[in-house]
Every structure is written in structure tokens, then in C-alpha cells.
């Protein structure tokens, strides 16, 4: 049954207003959307990063759920301990058994420094949901490149310059890496597609065992677009197939959304000043490579999901 927006608005606001994230931050927005879709008590934990520093400035906290942050690279390990402790308390009847653990981390805390802890927790099969809010760089420390930063993007450590066209490597496919762990539920989501996002969170919460949702989380500071454009930027990322929406439910690949018309990736890139240099002298081949990679990945995804190949 389709989730109604009105229903979501009736659920408690678990990230209180007044936090210090930038206006228009889609990372914190994504987390807020996740928590609106949650229908049971949860213990939340987050890695170091924009989410954590903007929501917990002492003596305040925006978290209306129990929450712990301990370090950058270990959120999945912290969640492992929480989850086992909740099991002990659930078994002895001190708390309801359905309490769930949710871990949040940025792309740095997931793709890079937190990958080992995440892989370990997935392999051990803890009953928890892991949400990566992927803003494609280390934003909290000032927009440095990460393993999720797109090919050609200018960041403060992969700057465009006289001899550089931005990041020289393509991002790793983190969602695939999680799928390789054979966990019950893996999905990609985007904040503009709130119903899809909420549906995926609900599915993930109902699984027993690890679930992982990778949410694209545009950051206007790092991607350099006008503050109010975030939702459009995320929609275009999905329409251009840079960030396809899909799930892998008990090993079964399902495409969540197929754009009727697939615009050129350049249309998306053009709106973000982190790619400005690609549209000046010499960026052409990089643009071509980006488009080719997106097309290849998209064709592969269609096949995996049992969808007919591209028509346009």
C-alpha cells in the first residue's frame, strides 16, 4: 500500500529544528525522512561528519531518539554493540524486542574509513539498518575528495587547475560492495523521491539482519549550486541515471524508477560549479567518459533487474 504524505507528516519529528546544518542541506533532510518512516523505538548512532557536528552542539541535541556518536570510522561497530545489548535487554523483557538500531554515516565514513567496520558488521549479520547519506565528499572538513567523489569533480584536494581536470578516478560502487555481502536488503534512494525512500526504509526495518540504504544527499556548499536547488539536483541525478533508484531485496534486483526520457549527464553537471572546468578548455573527453560510464552502468543495472534494455 502506497505511503501517504499525510501519514508521514503525522509521525513525530525525531530530528528537532534548530540544528546547525546549512539551510538546504539534504544530508540532514535525508536522515529526517528516514526517521519519519520509522514506526518503532530506535537507537541511533552516527559517524563523525556534517550530520553529527550540526545536530549535537553541546549543550543541545537535535536527536529525539537515543543517540550516540563516538568516532569516524566505526559507526557499524558501535551499532554492533548497541544491537547485541538491545538483544540482551529485549530477551530479559526490559525493553520491547522490536527496538532497532540505525547507523548513519556520510560517504567518507562509509566508502572509505568506515568500510572495514561496515563489512565486518554486515558479515556478522547484526540486525540493524545502515544509512549512508552520500554527499560525495568529506564536507565536514571542507570538501575533500572521497571514494564517492565523481570523476572530474573539483574538490579542495582534487582541485581543477592548469594541469588538472578534477578527480582523476571514478567513484567506487559502494552499493555493489554491500550487495556482495549477501545481506537481506540493499537499496539506493534519493531525497526528492520521498515515497520511494520511505518505502525502502520500512522494508529495511522489517528485515531481520543487516539492511543498507545509500541515499544521495546533495550538498550545495560542496557541489556549488544555489541553496534552494537541492531537490532538483537530486531529481536530475536520478533522471540522468547517475544515481539510479533500485533495491536488492533478498538477492532479487528491482528497479524502482525508470525515467521516461534520460537527459544527458552534462545537463546535470552543468548546474554544479564543481564541474565548471569541464565545460571550459579540454573538458570534453572527461564529459564523454562520464556519459559512457553512466550508460554502461545503467545498461548493466537494467539487465540485473530483468528490465528491457534501453530504448532511446
Amino acid at each position: 500500500m502506497a505511503i501517504k504524505l499525510r501519514e508521514l507528516t503525522q509521525t513525530p519529528e525525531l530530528i528537532a529544528g534548530g540544528h546547525r546544518a546549512c539551510a538546504g542541506c539534504l544530508g540532514v533532510n535525508a536522515v529526517r525522512q528516514v526517521l519519519h518512516a520509522v514506526d518503532r523505538p530506535v537507537v541511533t548512532t552516527s559517524a563523525t561528519g556534517c550530520l553529527e557536528v550540526t545536530t549535537t552542539i553541546y549543550p543541545y541535541t537535535a536527536w529525539q531518539t537515543p543517540f550516540i556518536h563516538s568516532a569516524f570510522e566505526n559507526v557499524a561497530a558501535t551499532a554492533s554493540g548497541i544491537e547485541r545489548a538491545l538483544k540482551v535487554l529485549g530477551d530479559e523483557g526490559a525493553i520491547p524486542r522490536k527496538v532497532k538500531t540505525i547507523a548513519f554515516a556520510g560517504d567518507g565514513g562509509t566508502y572509505d574509513i568506515g568500510l572495514q567496520a561496515l563489512s565486518g558488521a554486515l558479515e556478522r549479520g547484526h540486525d540493524f539498518l545502515y544509512v549512508c547519506y552520500n554527499n560525495e565528499a568529506y564536507m565536514n572538513t571542507g570538501i575533500q575528495r572521497s571514494g564517492a567523489t565523481p570523476y572530474g569533480a573539483s574538490t579542495t584536494t582534487s582541485p581543477a587547475g592548469r594541469r588538472s581536470l578534477g578527480k582523476t578516478q571514478r567513484p567506487k560502487n559502494m552499493t555493489d560492495i554491500v550487495v556482495a555481502h549477501s545481506v537481506p536488503y540493499v537499496a539506493q534512494a534519493s531525497p526528492h523521491s520521498w515515497r520511494d525512500l520511505a518505502t525502502k526504509v520500512k522494508k529495511a526495518m522489517d528485515k531481520e539482519g543487516p539492511a543498507f540504504i545509500n541515499i544521495l544527499a546533495p550538498c550545495h556548499r560542496g557541489w556549488r549550486y544555489p541553496m534552494e536547488e537541492g531537490i532538483n539536483i537530486s531529481k536530475m541525478a536520478v533522471d540522468t541515471c547517475v544515481w539510479p533508484l533500485f533495491e536488492v531485496d533478498e538477492g532479487e534486483w528491482n528497479l524502482s524508477y525508470r525515467p521516461r526520457r534520460k537527459p544527458d549527464v552534462a545537463d546535470w553537471l552543468k548546474r554544479q560549479r564543481r564541474f565548471d572546468h569541464l565545460f571550459k578548455n579540454g573538458g570534453g573527453p572527461v564529459l564523454d567518459t562520464i556519459q559512457d560510464t553512466v550508460d554502461e552502468d545503467w545498461a548493466k543495472l537494467l539487465e540485473r533487474c530483468g528490465e528491457p534494455p534501453k530504448t532511446d
Partner: peptide
Amino acid sequence: TELILVESEHSAMSAVIGASATGVRA
């Protein structure tokens, strides 16, 4: 005891921090 066989000592201490903060002996 719930024994968590972690993938590193960094995770061992992180996991017991998570468990202890949740209100159990770790």
C-alpha cells in the same frame, strides 16, 4: 554472554562502547 567476534580491535572497543552506552555490562 553475547560474544561479538569483531574484525579489528578498533571495532572491539567501539562495539563495547556501543553496548555499554546502551546500558549493559561490556
